[in-house]
Design a binder for these strands. Structure first.
Lengths: 125, 125
DNA sequence: GTATCGTTTAGAGCGCGCTCTAAGGCAAGC
DNA sequence: GCTTGCCTTAGAGCGCGCTCTAAACGATAC
């Protein structure tokens, strides 16, 4: 039988988010409907953790929090919003591809600069 | 004869940085030794503009401003710091490659999610 | 001469995404 | 019953990278 709930500290360790940030994400509706135990302590489910990991992915790929809140809001409306969520995600996919292209371009220029410095070092160093 | 100096507005248009940001970059020593005309107005040279474009590249690849200031400081010390600048740049190159790898990984996961949504749409939509 | 620009400076303010504080509650250990 | 410790909340504070304001100055237009 696999464990089905996690305390805020456990989720913090699993996700790398601090307990402060986990409460903050709930306050701004990035994550919703977290259960509570008899003391009012948060109890996160497996699917809550999976959702947090997805949020982290969106953040690390540059999605602004407002857009993530929009996504979370669609998700809470249920199955009827699947298409809108897919479209939002496809838009974001294009943003990531564009970031990748920009980074490659920058990388090339920086490599050129490094080569330039190496030549300077050979000439004068 | 090619134009050799630019006003702050011209540099703003060339680089996309606002005049405010250009003054700010000078205040924090990201760019140094900008000439002045008789009225005390800034006069940027071609090489100032090239340096700004390099700074923009560093920033767009995630280098923190403190590290950019360090780079600018080394540059102002002259030729003897070429090696240190190259090393700093090589460190940054590795950072960019790591960003690229992470982005690719995230992209893959997001594509999977999109496929998952498409399946949901076929089943229930 | 005066109104309109664009410039200068020092320094305040802002938006983002957290990050932390204060004050209080419950539970277990001694 | 008191200490320790982790939890709760509302709300203040922070670091980054700008972004803007206020006050003053000089050049040009009329």
């Amino acid at each position: 039988m696999t464990k089905t709930t996690y305390t805020i500290q456990e989720v913090s360790q699993l996700t790398g988010l601090t307990a402060h940030t986990l409460r903050y994400y709930e306050k701004i509706s990035l994550i919703r409907g977290i259960e509570r135990d008899a003391n009012g302590y948060r109890l996160y489910s497996e699917s809550d953790v999976a959702w947090l990991e997805f949020l982290i992915r969106l953040r690390e790929t540059g999605m602004p929090i407002q857009e993530m809140i929009r996504f979370s809001s669609l998700r809470s409306e249920g199955e009827t919003t699947v298409r809108q969520r897919r479209e939002l995600l496809e838009l974001h996919e294009r943003s990531i591809r564009s970031q990748l292209a920009d980074l490659y371009c920058h990388l090339g220029k920086i490599e050129e600069k490094i080569i330039h410095y190496k030549q300077l070092e050979e000439e004068h160093g």
